[in-house]
Design a protein around this nucleic acid. Structure first.
Length: 924
RNA sequence: GGGCUCGUAGAUCAGCGGUAGAUCGCUUCCUUCGCAAGGAAGAGGCCCCGGGUUCAAAUCCCGGCGAGUCCA
């Protein structure tokens, strides 16, 4: 299996008397100083040896431990780098959350495109691993939120060039030496440490890796990322893919801060070492008070559970039975003792997770990271309720946010409270729905079908256990199948194949052409330029022209392309679209300027100006929204047009009209400030260090150098064209807001000339409405309201009049023909009225004991037939016969039917035939 | 990014092609020293919006808007 065996033959191991051994239990290869050792030391081959027996000289708190680690590496030439946000999608678009320190440097640094912020560096990176959510609290060692302490070195091979960093900083020997030395300095017993060979594979990369185990606890993983997937590669690894060596090779280490802290304290579970105050607080709050004997059992159980190989939640039950057995305790009793504690451990961990998420600006939503935060919050709330913790959740999250040093604690609390309220509403809705369902099934012997349970969960978020508890009050059975969540997944079906957007084919023909010089960055106000035509491609309609340089802005960053003309002395082609394909800018024209010709380019000034106004305005509106709504406001998307622009921002509640007014107000203040809008080309790492990751609101640009736009106090990485002073925007008018999904609000606005036009359009609409009502514009709302009320009143009055008319018609006999049908008098009458009148008249006739057959020719031919109770005439059949004569159909209940057809000429004939029809139906 | 569910009286919901309903709340009256409660009468609906199918749409279909939920 370990075909990378030779990779582990380190000088450091040899020089320090290590030997390579094979584990007698699992067969893993490992390195140790202890010749007598037989197992690799990792559970389940061996048990925890540090509980009540700390492995370091001193006890450390979480922050003390972090400081020890970082300063150790700082003293050894590593630069200390500030942690990145837990929302990894802030700087990369392939993942949602930060799960390891190396995520900070993927993909651009690890691939060698961009230099790291420092080399070598050390960091303690907060991470969130949702996949561990079920284990938290139960295993004693899993946490969803953790800090991965690390030291990283980025190397390139001697013979490789063209990378953003060069040469070797250090590699395997130095890495192991640093780790070993750190352990030694902390007072670890060096001959108890094992270094297990465990090649790492992940995401198309691979390399040798070492797990560092001490007294049964995995303290670190040292990964030597140096291989990439390659069908022709010479290394076949455990995922059955072949790999070859890369030009870059990276030291990627991970030291779990929580585990090191735990090791230093030797508490029964990691949670007690990490959040002692919070665990105490929660225990007290939930009134968990154990006797000495019970405490002893819990303590022993914790120690033993660490020894077992619990990697998923199914194992926990089995493990618990095993532990109960070993302690000689009844398993139910053990479960009852442990459950509240496990909940408390999980609550502490989840609160920390939430503090990280909301602290870093994640907004609860039904998509993306927002959805993950919602899931964690709801789960935490359920745990707190089950465990009897009555402290408000926002307080618990705030305890963690305070400890973690977040400054936006008010917003965090507000987010938690808003989201809890939403959850409460969902639960209310859910229980009402389930109660109703249970009532339906009450008295039934059948249980509620599984399909219904799946539907309740999938569409309404109602957990099966909630259905169970409510249904039991109604004595309704519920059977939740073991594979419930698999059934839910099945409902979602196969994931659709990912479609590659085209571009692969089109890009090929532009390959080999030089990068087009982008003049539009040099002087954004210039609108004319000269250039050389490098290539012309025939298109179905028109041509694709490639120049050596251009002033034309290609579509990108949410900004549409420029239009204009390209002219030679002989030809003038209109430019209708401009695209950028791999650094080559392609102009779509309706005429061929000729390859090798000099052309004069002219930009459509009005269109460009409108785009510039809208682009700069987008930055200003975003910044204004941030000031009005809070620091968590971030762009979720944007589109700038000619007549309007739209900006999507993340926000956790719906936005009020007053807030919109404020945003508009603040944005226009920025315009009136007439501050200069500056562009700056800057080193990417420097920009990140100086302005943070919020500069990437519009997307993540490539390259070592990035372009920043400073507008007022707002700074963003942006490739668009901008005006030179905010005053040039002229005016900003917010036209509309809508909630495009949970947690995302779209602001549509117009800037400059478009703002004036939009205002004029609105005003025009209002004036027209005022004219129709013949009032001044200010009175329109009041008048409209009055008219609407009046309209409703008249509708009601009309109804009443119809009723009265019907009564008169019915009592007066009128022009109707009266016949006898099997002893019951029937009135056959032609009334030119609408359905309502016919119905009312028919009802009135029936009240007097008549059969009513009414016909109207107002809208085609329509019939109503009504029969008093107890008379054996089927109204539906009568209407069916009559309607057939006018080319239509009809029906209804036996005592009251309606119908009709398009042929109103046949109405009179049909009514004449009515007596026969009635008698026929009676006889049948 | 994808799936699913729901928009009907002030609130909660039923109706699911054929005369718009229930419960609570509201108004007035009766019973009561008063309150809780009970009795009687009544008001309150662009059945989310726009198109289509149909003799007929709250109901079926399509689109939009709004809300909720599960997943990646």
């Amino acid at each position: 299996m370990s075909d990378l065996a030779e990779e582990y033959e380190l000088d450091y191991f040899e020089a320090n008397g290590f030997r390579r051994m094979e584990c007698s239990e699992c067969g893993a290869r490992f390195w140790t100083r202890d010749e007598t050792r037989v197992t690799c030391g990792e559970p389940p081959c061996e048990t925890y040896g540090f509980i009540d027996n700390p492995g370091f000289d001193e006890e450390f708190s979480l922050s003390e431990m972090r400081e020890v680690f970082l300063s150790f590496f700082q003293e050894r030439d590593h630069e200390r780098v500030d942690p990145y946000p837990v929302a990894a999608n802030r700087w990369r678009d392939d993942v949602l959350l930060t799960q390891a320190s190396i995520y900070d440097f993927q993909p651009l640094v690890t691939s060698g495109e961009t230099p790291p912020p420092a080399n070598p560096l050390t960091i303690s990176q907060p991470c969130i691993r949702m996949q561990d959510i079920d284990n938290v609290g139960k295993t004693g060692r899993h946490t969803m939120a953790f800090e991965m302490m690390a030291h990283h070195a980025f190397n390139t091979r001697e013979d490789a060039d063209g990378y953003a960093y060069e040469g070797e900083v250090y590699w395997k020997d130095r890495t192991v030496e640093l780790c070993d030395t750190l352990l030694g300095e902390l007072g670890a017993q060096l001959d108890e440490i094992t270094y297990i060979e465990d090649p790492w594979v992940g995401g198309g990369n691979a390399g040798p890796a070492i797990e560092v185990i001490y007294r049964g606890l995995e303290l670190a993983t040292l990964v030597f990322m140096s291989l990439e997937q390659d069908p022709d590669g010479g290394y076949l690894l455990k995922d059955d893919n072949s790999y070859s060596k890369m030009d870059t090779y990276v030291v990627d280490t991970g030291y779990g801060l929580e585990r090191w802290t735990w090791m230093s304290q030797g508490t029964p579970t990691v949670y007690e070492a990490v959040y002692p105050e919070m665990i105490e607080f929660l225990k007290e709050n939930a009134e968990i008070d154990l006797s000495d004997q019970e405490s002893a059992i819990v303590h022993d159980a914790a120690r033993l559970s660490g020894n077992l190989d619990i990697d998923d939640v199914d194992d926990v039950e089995a493990a618990r039975a095993d532990i109960a057995n070993q302690l000689g305790v009844d398993v139910t009793r053990l479960r009852r003792l442990l459950a509240p504690l496990e909940a408390i451990y999980a609550i502490a961990d989840h609160s920390r997770t939430l503090a990280y998420m909301f602290g870093d600006g994640i907004v609860p939503s039904n998509v993306g990271t927002g959805y993950l935060s919602r899931m964690v919050l709801r789960r935490t709330k359920r745990l707190a309720d089950d465990a009897g913790v009555d402290a408000p959740l926002d307080e618990l999250v705030d305890m963690q946010a305070k400890r973690l040093g977040y400054s936006n604690r008010d917003t965090i609390r507000d987010v938690v409270r808003t989201e809890l309220e939403r959850y409460r509403e969902t639960l209310d809705r859910g229980s009402r729905r389930v109660e109703q369902l249970a009532e339906e099934y009450a008295g039934d012997t059948e249980p509620i079908p599984t399909g219904t349970l799946v539907e309740l969960y999938d569409s309404h978020g109602i957990q099966p256990d909630m259905v169970e508890s409510i249904a039991s009050e109604y004595d309704v059975a519920v059977e939740v199948p073991d594979d419930f969540y698999a059934l839910v997944a099945k409902r979602h079906g196969e994931e659709p194949e990912e479609q590659d957007s085209n571009g692969g084919e089109g890009a090929a023909q532009f390959a080999g052409l030089p990068e087009t010089d982008r003049l539009y960055y040099e002087d954004q106000g210039r609108l004319e330029f000269e250039a050389m035509v490098l290539e012309v491609f025939d298109r179905e309609e028109g041509y694709d022209v490639v120049l050596d340089q251009t002033m034309f802005y290609p579509e990108g960053g949410g900004q549409p392309s420029d239009h204009g003309t390209l002219s030679t002395d002989d030809v003038t082609g209109r430019v209708t679209d401009v695209q950028i394909v791999e650094d080559v800018i392609v102009h779509s024209t309706d005429d061929n300027p000729g390859k090798g010709e000099f052309v004069r380019g002219k930009i459509d000034a009005g269109r460009r100006r409108r785009h510039m106004h809208h682009h700069t305005a987008t930055h200003l509106v975003g910044h204004a929204a941030r000031r009005v709504l809070g620091d968590h406001i971030r762009q979720a998307g944007a589109q700038k047009g000619t007549d309007s622009a739209r900006l999507d921002v993340k926000h956790y509640e719906s936005i009020t009209r007053e807030q919109i007014r404020q945003i508009e107000h603040v944005a226009n203040e920025y315009v009136m400030d007439n501050a200069s809008v500056k562009q700056e080309w800057i080193d990417r790492n420097e920009a990140e260090a100086k302005y943070g990751f919020d500069i990437y609101q519009g997307g993540i640009p490539e390259g070592e150098q990035i372009r920043l736009i400073h507008a007022q106090e707002d700074t963003q990485a942006c490739g668009g064209t901008h005006v030179s002073r905010t005053g040039d925007v002229g005016a900003i008018k917010i036209l509309n807001t809508e909630r495009i999904q949970d947690g995302v609000i779209r602001l549509t606005f117009a800037a400059g000339k478009a703002a004036i036009e939009a205002t004029q359009t609105t005003e025009q609409t209002l004036s027209e409405a005022a004219e129709v009502l013949d009032v001044s514009p200010e009175s329109v709302p009041e008048t409209a309201r009055r008219f609407f009320e009046e309209w409703k009143d008249r509708g009601k009055r009309l109804e009443e009049l119809k009723e009265e008319l019907a009564a008169v018609r019915a009592s007066g006999g009128g022009s109707g023909e009266e016949i006898d049908v099997g002893g019951t008098p029937a009135i056959i009458q032609h009334i030119d009225g609408d359905m309502d009148e016919l119905r009312a008249t028919a009802n009135a006739l029936v009240d007097e004991g008549h059969i009513a057959v009414l016909g109207s020719g107002v809208d085609g031919a329509q019939f109503v037939v009504a029969v008093p109770q107890g008379v054996e005439v089927n109204a539906g059949e009568v209407v069916g016969e009559l309607a057939e004569k006018v080319g239509g159909g009809g029906g209804g209940p036996p005592d009251f039917a309606q119908g009709g057809g398009p042929d109103d000429d046949a109405l009179t004939d049909a009514l004449q035939a009515a007596p026969d029809v009635l008698r026929q139906v009676l006889d049948a």
